[in-house]
Design a protein around this nucleic acid. Structure first.
Length: 961
RNA sequence: GCGGGGGUUGCCGAGCUUGGUCAAAGGCGGUGGACUCAAGAUCCACUCCCGCAGGGGUUCAGGGGUUCAAAUCCCCUCCCCCGCACCA
């Protein structure tokens, strides 16, 4: 057994000691790659491992190619989840404790310190760093930092970023709707919601129907998602059993009196409305009264309906029976229940005479689509709720997409358009208002309270909706490389779609907004340009360690100079005065920024495209000069575990660190890199990992063995040359794949393809043990180890040492194809032999020739090769024929030639490459014989079985007896 | 609803950008064989259907089209996944 663990520790120690991954500026070309730093609310699992392994592999590859590579790492602790965890630990929440104690295996004595969020951060920062070191990541740890005010120099950097954005008018104040816990008084993110986190918020239009009471206008705001149907209202619905209120509504300096459900009054009080309830009463009080449609002026009656939910929007509903199944059915029901009407003193004739108003032309339906749909689905009464809902859905969808409006002044326009026009018009003229409401209920906060929709003011936004900014972001994207390229469309869509993004909140860890300290910059907003901070972070850390850094003095002008201005000795002197940092150091920082920027690659998992990665583009173009705009983004997919989604709350995770402990870092790295390409997801399977481990052991053993060989200057045999040629191919394939972040293909070339070729080579050279073979294998070993080094760096360091390589393999030169090794005809010959063996085997099995003794092989005659060459050039029967027939020798066998050309054309054998078949056969004779267990006779004079003429170039005729 | 991406042979998953060399890589699973006292590991062969001579047939969600030629290009239909924000 190979002790991978010892090997890994040995090299990790050496790398750290010799600081080989801590680059300084030098004359080499730079390569700067970063990955989205992890949020430390727990351990990283093998799904995350992919995100971090890819850039490490690329960094290692580029380093070997001779670039000066910077690959830094930091930690993200901004936001509320960590605070929330601390809270739940403090409350002894059993699930949280289970996750941290049993899934993340946090020692008990440390677990209880998690009541303080700082300890969570401390613990996971330490373990994450250990994990990354154990994974063999070639990170420059001298630049490590973390976010929030707990790390003042970075916090100052974020303050600078926000001042800069604000100065450019990109941070603005405004109102915004949020889900809100009315008891605790806090906005609710997805993580803060216990039930109903998927429920969307709808925007209802409230159409203010007019009720005259003692000469005074009172409004009944009917809530609707289809404002265009205001033209088809025949009556109004109220729930007679529900409690309604009459209330003074003050909004935007105006005061009106509304009648709405009691629940609505409560909910509207969170939506910019001041509400003063005058009286409370049952809905029945209003049944039978008449109200005026504010748009058409029609007088309509208020009728009772049990389907009206007082807890949905205003609890006031307008009735459009021609286009709303619920309304139609309710009217039909009422027609049958005259006693109900009499109870409210309503003349049943009024209901009987309600005439439907058709508004929308809909293909496939007549005048009243709702009526038809109700009949079609067989709805009997209001009790058929499910069917009614289905009918409503069908009609709504059909009318919205295909409906044409029939009423002036919107006649002939699609409903889709009219809808917004009418809503806007009503609002502008004060005839309508609006209200936010959950599409479904309940929505319960994690504190156990029923959530409401609140409009909050004084909210700070980053204005991603700014058109000029968008334009710049588009330009930057167009100049960037995106891997995989197929994701570009999504980036474009996100840039178009992004609008004002709330950038600060009142809870959680973070950097306070510098001009409004009660707000804390939220986590997606403080992580957009920190790649620039890495460039100066080494110096910051050093100054900090030496106690020479007063973060309070890191002013805006300091960062302005480093990141935005030209070099200036004078400025450096001034800043030395102001910051206490030596001018020389300031100069070095600026040099580093100018050297490393722009960022070459940003890596992340695909889930960050709609937010972080796009914000990253936006913020860079807003703040930095064009030459510092980022150059590329590479996104990767997730991972599943034995076919199921990883989820920490279900405990279905494999921690990255546990996977490493169990299998070794190199195995985990190689496995993850080989599983999936780009942004497709991979599936972690224990069994396969075990298999890979064995293969890696084999790799180790093979190279160890080859390391004992010496390279000599000897004549190589064809099969040796074949292996070297194949090696060239592998080098080329792996290099090209890595350039495009295609790790899976790269592993296939760098590992599996060589492994397979080697297997074939060993088979072909069985029994040979000469200097040529040893030399070949030794050459292979030296290249193979380097090709594998980005994937399995520890193992390769160890093997590199065995091979007597200079220094670290991590810094060794990436192999390039040797021009002298290219040899396509040898490859073709080898394929030729392989195909022949397969053919013979097939013949034996199909013809059931188990007792055969000999195989006669006939290669194609010279003239056939000539014909093939002509056909390959002409690719056309006539042209080939006339060309060939110029040769009198050919004319003698005209018929045969014509047949051959026909066949070649049919087979589209246009890829003409000449090999010496007989030579290849002779060299491989012993091998073929041992493979098929028959005696081989090459090109005998006797035409056995009349097969001779079947021989084609690259496909010899065979006769077996 | 809006936006992004997919449907490939038992399973996973390449290939589709630049139509032919695609019955379609690789892995897993399965079958047979070598090795072994045996198991494991390893290696070899086969793994859509048919075939007593290296061949033929039917496939790449479904339907239609372009082309000498389509898994690959175009159109339509069906189905699936992901995002929609103040949340990491």
């Amino acid at each position: 057994m190979i002790d991978f663990k010892a090997i890994e520790e040995k090299w990790q120690k050496k790398w750290l000691e010799e600081k080989i991954f801590e680059p300084k500026i030098d004359e080499r070309e730079k390569f700067y790659i970063t990955v989205a730093f992890p949020y430390l609310s727990g351990h990283l699992h093998v799904g995350h491992a992919r995100t971090y392994t890819i850039p490490d592999v690329i960094a290692r590859f580029k380093r070997m190619q001779g670039y000066n590579v910077l690959f830094p790492m930091a930690w993200h602790i901004t936001g509320s989840p960590i605070v929330g965890i601390a809270e739940r630990i403090k409350n002894r929440d059993s699930k949280t404790i289970w996750i941290y104690r049993d899934v993340y295996k946090v020692p008990e004595d440390i677990l209880w310190t998690f009541e303080d969020p700082k300890n969570i951060v401390k613990y996971f920062m330490k373990t994450a760093r250990e994990t990354f070191i154990k994974a063999g990541f070639s990170v420059d740890w001298s630049r490590e930092f973390h976010t929030t005010s707990l790390f003042p120099p970075f916090s100052k950097f974020i303050e600078w970023q926000f001042w800069t954005l604000k100065k450019k008018g990109l941070v603005v104040k405004g109102a915004h709707r949020v889900r809100w816990d009315p008891v605790v008084g806090t906005p609710l993110g997805d993580h803060d919601i216990m039930e109903g986190e998927d429920i969307p918020i709808l925007e209802y239009v409230l159409i203010k129907f007019i009720l005259m009471e003692n000469g005074e206008e009172i409004y009944l705001p009917a809530a609707t998602l289809r404002p265009e149907t205001v033209y088809g209202v025949t009556n109004m619905w109220l729930n007679p059993e529900a409690t309604y209120v009459k209330a003074k509504i003050r909004s935007k300096g105006k005061e009106e009196v509304w009648i709405i459900s009691r629940e609505a009054a409560y909910k509207l009080s969170f939506q910019d409305k001041e509400i003063e309830v005058i009286e409370e009463f049952k809905g029945e009080k209003l049944i039978g009264k008449w109200v005026k449609n504010p748009v058409t002026g029609d007088e309509i009656i208020i009728l009772p309906a049990e389907f009206v939910d007082p807890d949905n929007a205003t609890g006031v509903v307008m009735s459009v029976p021609a286009h709303a199944p619920f309304d139609h059915v309710a009217i039909e029901d009422l027609k049958k229940e005259t006693e109900v009407l009499l109870k409210y003193d309503i003349d049943p004739r009024i209901v009987g005479e309600i005439s439907y108003i058709s508004l929308i032309e809909l293909e496939g339906y007549g005048e009243f689509p709702a009526v038809e749909e109700v009949e079609k689905l067989g709805v009997k009464s209001q009790k058929d709720k499910e069917k009614l809902e289905q009918a409503t859905k069908n009609i709504y969808k059909a009318e919205f997409h295909k409906g044409i409006f029939k009423i002036e002044p919107y006649k002939g326009k699609p409903v889709q358009e009219v809808k917004d026009l009418i809503a806007k018009d009503m609002k502008d003229r004060g005839k309508a208002d609006m209200m936010y409401e959950f599409a479904e209920k309940p929505v319960i906060s994690r504190f156990g309270n029923q959530a409401v929709v609140k409009i909050i003011h004084d909210q700070w936004f980053i204005d991603y909706g700014n058109p000029e900014w968008k334009e710049k972001a588009r330009e930057a994207l167009a100049r960037m490389k995106i891997y995989p390229e197929s994701r570009r469309a999504q980036f474009e869509a996100v840039i178009d779609w992004l609008d004002k993004k709330a950038c600060a909140r009142k809870i959680g860890l973070g950097t306070p907004l510098p001009w409004d300290k009660e707000w804390v910059i939220e986590s997606l907003s403080d992580s957009t340009i920190y790649m620039a901070y890495y460039t100066i972070s080494r110096h910051m850390n050093r100054l900090r360690e030496e106690g020479k850094l007063d973060s309070e003095k890191l002013t805006r002008e300091f960062f302005d100079y480093l990141f935005l201005e030209e070099f200036s000795e004078k400025r450096e002197k001034e800043l030395e005065e102001k910051t206490g940092i030596p001018a020389e150091t300031i100069h070095e920082m600026k040099e580093e920024f100018e050297y490393w920027y722009p960022l070459d690659w940003r890596c992340s998992a695909k889930d960050l495209i709609p937010n972080h990665l796009t914000f990253f583009i936006f913020n860079h173009v807003a703040i930095f000069r064009k030459e510092h705009w980022p150059k590329g983004i590479a996104v990767n997919g997730f991972g599943t575990l034995e076919g199921t989604k990883m989820s920490k709350s279900k405990g279905n995770v494999l921690n990255f660190i546990d996977a490493i402990e169990e299998n070794g870092a190199d195995v985990v790295r190689l496995y993850i890199m080989s599983l999936a390409e780009h942004d497709s997801d991979f599936d972690w399977r224990r069994k396969e990992v075990g298999k890979l481990k064995k293969q890696l052991e084999r790799f180790y053993e093979l190279i160890s063995e080859f390391a004992q060989y010496e390279e000599k200057d000897v004549e190589l045999m064809d099969i040796d040359k074949w292996l070297l040629h194949r090696l060239n191919r592998a080098i080329e394939g792996a290099t090209k794949a890595l350039e495009e972040f295609r790790t899976r293909t790269a592993v296939q070339w760098a590992f599996y393809s060589i492994l397979n070729d080697l297997r074939w080579y060993m088979r072909r050279t069985e029994g040979r043990d000469d200097e040529a073979k040893r030399t070949t294998l030794r050459k292979l070993a030296e290249i193979w180890v380097r090709l594998m080094a980005p994937f399995t760096p520890h193992t390769c360091e160890e093997l590199w040492e065995k091979l007597g390589g200079e220094g670290f393999v991590s810094l060794a030169k990436w192999p390039e194809p040797d021009p002298e090794w290219w040899n396509e005809s040898i490859e073709l010959e080898e394929d030729y032999i392989k195909n022949l063996i397969e053919d013979i085997k097939e013949i034996i099995s199909v013809a059931r020739l188990e007792n055969a003794r000999r195989a006669y092989i006939y290669t194609a005659k010279e003239w056939k090769w000539k014909v093939a060459q002509v056909v390959a050039e002409k690719r056309d029967f006539k042209a080939s024929m006339s060309e060939v027939m110029k040769d009198p020798e050919m004319r003698k066998r005209g018929k045969e030639v014509s047949k051959l050309i026909q066949k070649l054309i049919k087979d589209r054998a246009f890829d003409f490459k000449r090999i010496d078949e007989e030579k290849a056969l002779k060299q491989a004779k012993d091998f073929i014989e041992s493979e098929i267990g028959l005696e081989i006779i090459i090109n005998p004079d006797e035409d056995k079985g009349g097969k001779k003429r079947q021989a084609m170039p690259m496909k010899p005729a065979v006769y077996i007896e």
